[in-house]
């Protein structure tokens, strides 16, 4: 699924994104960064309600190219700068975590696990 489709499915606001053709292969949803660090695989997108610079750092370590903030949360200017520097796209959606994940899953985006 391309980033532009993610934006459409989540009715998301684009905070920072250079390449709307970015291919998103899997996604995961978590507010706990250690869980993300334990389980996330390559080429993933992170959906989270956690808004602090460690969200960006976690994405950096995991080679995550896009973060979606759920529940309408918006990152601060320092986080946006950090994400731009690391080439990480940022979106914000008004949907809650469950609904945001469900909409993406229904649209064909998997979780990257064996059971998908």
């Amino acid at each position: 699924m391309k980033l532009r489709e993610v934006i459409e499915v989540l009715k998301a606001e684009v905070i920072n994104a250079d390449n709307l053709d970015l291919e998103i292969v899997t996604a995961c949803g978590s507010d706990m960064m250690s869980d993300a660090l334990a389980f996330v695989k390559d080429q993933a997108m992170l959906l989270t309600g956690l808004v602090n610079p460690q969200t960006i750092r976690t994405a950096e370590m995991l080679d995550i190219h896009c973060i979606v903030f759920v529940r309408g949360k918006m990152p601060g200017a320092d986080m946006i700068e950090l994400a731009k520097d690391r080439d990480i796209a940022l979106l914000s959606t008004g949907y809650r975590m469950f609904t945001a994940c469900g909409r993406l899953y229904a649209a064909g985006l998997g979780g990257g696990c064996d059971e998908n």
Binding site: D31, M32, M33, S34, D35, L37, A38, T48, L50, N52, Q54, T55, T58
Partner: peptide, 15 residues
Amino acid sequence: ALGFGAGMGLPNIKK
């Protein structure tokens, strides 16, 4: 509240 402290740090390092 900052997204850590779930008791996964050291196990993740080992992993």
